[in-house]
Simulated scan of single mutants.
Amino acid sequence: MLTKTQAVDGAAIKKAIEGRDGKMLSSFYADDALVRVIDRNNPPSKPREIRGRAAITTFWDDICSRAMTHKVDTTIAHGDSLAFTQACAYPDGTKVFCAAMLELKNGLIARQTVVQAWDE
């Protein structure tokens, strides 16, 4: 059964992330999408790059399979751009904060940049 393509908007992103629905999240991306992750281990000069829907699906499946909570706090949409902040917590109390900027093309995510910080 195919996942029904849903319009990418703040409400859909919030539902998929907070519901830990990797399949829904993956359906939001173009086949040739690029996700860039910037954090302590992946600095701005050498971000982690995840290319293509298959690799992005693996990325989201990993994140959504973890025992943790996700809360999308703020979402801002303007034209073909969508941005949101996300607060996550692991059962041991470790927290992660993410800010993401998405570029949409033909209703799908073409590029996404994530900046995240972890408790250390």
Rank of each mutant, 00 (worst) to 15 (best):
D62E: 12
D62Y: 15
I63W: 15
I63C: 04
I63L: 14
I63F: 13
C64W: 05
C64H: 05
S65T: 05
R66Y: 09
R66M: 15
R66S: 08
T69I: 14
T69F: 06
T69Q: 10
H70F: 15
K71P: 00
K71I: 01
K71D: 10
K71Q: 14
V72T: 06
D73S: 08
T74E: 13
T74C: 05
T74F: 11
T75L: 06
T75K: 03
T75F: 05
T75N: 05
I76A: 09
A77S: 15
H78D: 15
G79N: 11
S81V: 06
L82H: 00
A83P: 05
A83W: 02
F84I: 01
T85D: 11
A87I: 05
A87R: 12
A87L: 13
Y90N: 10
Y90G: 00
P91D: 10
P91C: 08
P91L: 10
P91R: 06
P91V: 05
P91M: 11
D92R: 07
G93T: 03
G93Q: 04
T94N: 03
K95H: 10
K95P: 01
F97I: 05
C98Q: 12
A99T: 12
A99S: 12
A100L: 14
A100I: 04
M101G: 08
M101V: 13
M101Q: 11
L102T: 01
L102W: 01
E103F: 04
L104R: 02
L104N: 04
L104W: 06
